[in-house]
């Protein structure tokens, strides 16, 4: 990748962008990954509330699954899920 020359960069080291870190895929860090089983899910959204990334996809108040591009595999979601193994399970990558 060729990086921009100094005259083409914004002044003062500012980043005039909104949340462009989504382009950076932290999913590669993972050694364990959460697997989602929608049939066991009660959409309590605790997994979403506790995910540090955020890497739990939610729409209209419903859990939609995992954003594997960014999920680091911490396991908080699976551990805190009230449905435990029925909705979220950690497995080796």
């Amino acid at each position: 990748m060729s990086l921009k020359g100094y005259k083409d960069l914004p002044e003062g080291g500012v980043i005039p962008e909104r949340g462009n870190s989504v382009l950076y895929k932290t999913g590669e860090w993972r050694s364990m990954k959460p697997v989602y089983y929608p049939e066991g899910c009660v959409h309590c959204l605790l997994c979403w509330a506790f995910c540090p990334e955020p890497a739990i996809k939610v729409e209209n108040g419903r859990m939609l699954g995992i954003d594997y591009d960014h999920c680091k595999g911490c396991g908080i979601c699976a551990r805190e899920c009230p449905r435990k193994e029925k909705a979220l399970q950690m497995v080796r990558e």
Binding site: L3, K4, G5, Y6, K7, L9, E11, G12, G13, V14, I15, P16, E17, R18
Partner: peptide, 24 residues
């Protein structure tokens, strides 16, 4: 409407460029 991040962590890949602008 177009939020800006002031004062990010700039590593060796960009730091010299920012300083060159300042010198200019």
């Amino acid at each position: 409407d177009s939020p800006v991040t002031f004062g990010p962590l700039v590593l060796p890949d960009y730091f010299s460029e920012i300083k060159a602008q300042e010198a200019d």
